[in-house]
Structures are given as C-alpha cells and as structure tokens.
Amino acid sequence: MSAMLEIVRLSKHFPVRNGFGRQTGEVRAVDDVSFSIEKGKVYGLAGESGSGKSTIARMIMGLTRPTSGDILLDGRNITGDTGTRAYGRKVQMVFQNPGSSLNPRRTVGQSIAVPLDAHGHPRSDRTRRIVELLEMVQLPAEFASRYPHELSGGQKQRVAIARALAVVPQLIVLDEPTSALDVSVQAKVMDLLVDLGRQLELTFLFISHDLSLMRNFAQQVGVLYLGKIVETGPTATVFENPQHDYTRLLLASVPVISAEEAAMRPVIPLIDGEIPTAEQLLALRNAGGPDSQRIEQ
C-alpha cells in the first residue's frame, strides 16, 4: 500500500486589498490541510460553499499556486511542475456542470481528441481510441459526431469522464460530478465511476457536499470547514461516530428517506427554536459547551 496522492500542510491565502491596491488582510481559503489517498481508493472531501474544497482541487490540478505546503503524487513532489504535460498525463479532472465544461461548438469526438492531441497520441489511432473511450463510458460509437446540446445531462457527464480518461491518468479529481443530475441518472453515473475505478485501478479525489453520496462512494473522508479539515477518517467511522460539532451539524442537516438513517443522524440542540448555524454552534461550544442556558431542547 502506498499513497497515490499526499497533501502535506497545504495552504492558500488570498490577499484582501482595498481600493488603492494596498493589502489590508488575507483570506485563508485553505489552511494547513494534510491528507493522503491510497492507490485505487476514493477519498471524499466534504464541505459547504466557502470551505475551500474547490481551491484544494485547483491546487492539485495546478490551476492555482499554493502559498505553502507540498503535493506529492506517487511519492514525487509536484508543487513545482503542476501544469506540465507530464503531470497532466497523471492527473485529470471531471467538472461539476458538463453543460459548461464541454465546448458547445465541438463534437463529442473533437472534445475527446483534444487531450489525445495535446499528449501526442498518434493521429492514425485517434478514431479507434475515441470509440474505445466512448465504449468505456457505455456510449455508442456514433456519439462521436454529436454535439453536446444533443445529449442529456448524464450522457454529457459520461463524455466528460471519457475525456478525463483519454490520457490514462492515475488520479482523477471529481468536483461534484453528479450535482447537476437527476437522482436516477446520478446512480448510473456513480455506478460507472465505481466500475471504471475498479477496472483501471484509478484513484479518486471526490469533492461533494452530498454526504449520502459520499458515504456510499468514498472509503476515507475529510470534512472541511473554513479551509481546515476538522475531521478525517474512514467514512463509516466518521459518519457513525462524528466527533466534531461541525460534522455533527452537517450530518444532522441531511434530508433522509428512512427511519434507520434518521436514527443515525446526531441530534443538534436548537437555539431559540431554530437549527443553529455552524458559527453559532461552534461559538457556543467554545463558550462552554452545549449546556449553556440559551439552548431550549
């Protein structure tokens, strides 16, 4: 067992500037985050908007430079050479909304051909490879000549997955890959990802706000809150016995469809008859535990 991806004390701070361009402060979008993903496993990053999950994805993809910290891919520090071709061959990404991540003026075949060309795949073999990739995501070969607007949301996301697979990557970053899809379509796309992961021995970094989905897909999970990982561990352990207040609040907020699920959600004390926000809950904890007098229930 070795780590495919290792993130060591990664931070990204964005400067806050006033109207004259003078720096007046900084936002710690990602603050001292460390985790690692074993080869062939799925690591889930859970967090709400503003938690820094997309910034982490961007740094792994080389789209944003970290302020400090290291990213090790297969044991090699790649903080310097992210964005190079050799790196792009190993790490690929599937974006959230296939409607906007596929070029509407390119056919499916052309979209998949872009990474093939960029990475010097022989031209004579291109058509065969495109058909092969479409087959891998369970789409018929004639889809190569279609345009994105002719496809359904699920089919578009399959094309985005095929495009990510084109260069035979080792690590795929999935940024909310199914949040734009209906639940029945989501189930099929997730099935496909599970199968592909197994067949091709892929490692996934799975970014999502959907905790139910994460429970069923990721073996390890990290919960992000305001740029920090507040809790991490095997998914089953974190979900069944959450230690951090924020994890508990997140789990308690998920709308579920069965009594068993409802029973495993932590009970969050109400403040003034309302479900508290994360800030309120954590402030209360710091002020002396949830037994203070403002809590009713």
Binding site: A187, K188, R215, N216
Partner: peptide, 16 residues
C-alpha cells in the same frame, strides 16, 4: 444513496 451506507451503487434501478 443512503446515509447509512450499504445501499451501494450497482443495483440502482432503471428509473430513467
């Protein structure tokens, strides 16, 4: 997907 896990993918129905 179930919060309790174990629902898993692979047996998802053909709802679409």
């Amino acid at each position: 997907p179930r919060l309790t896990g174990g629902s898993g993918f692979g047996r998802a129905g053909a709802a679409a």
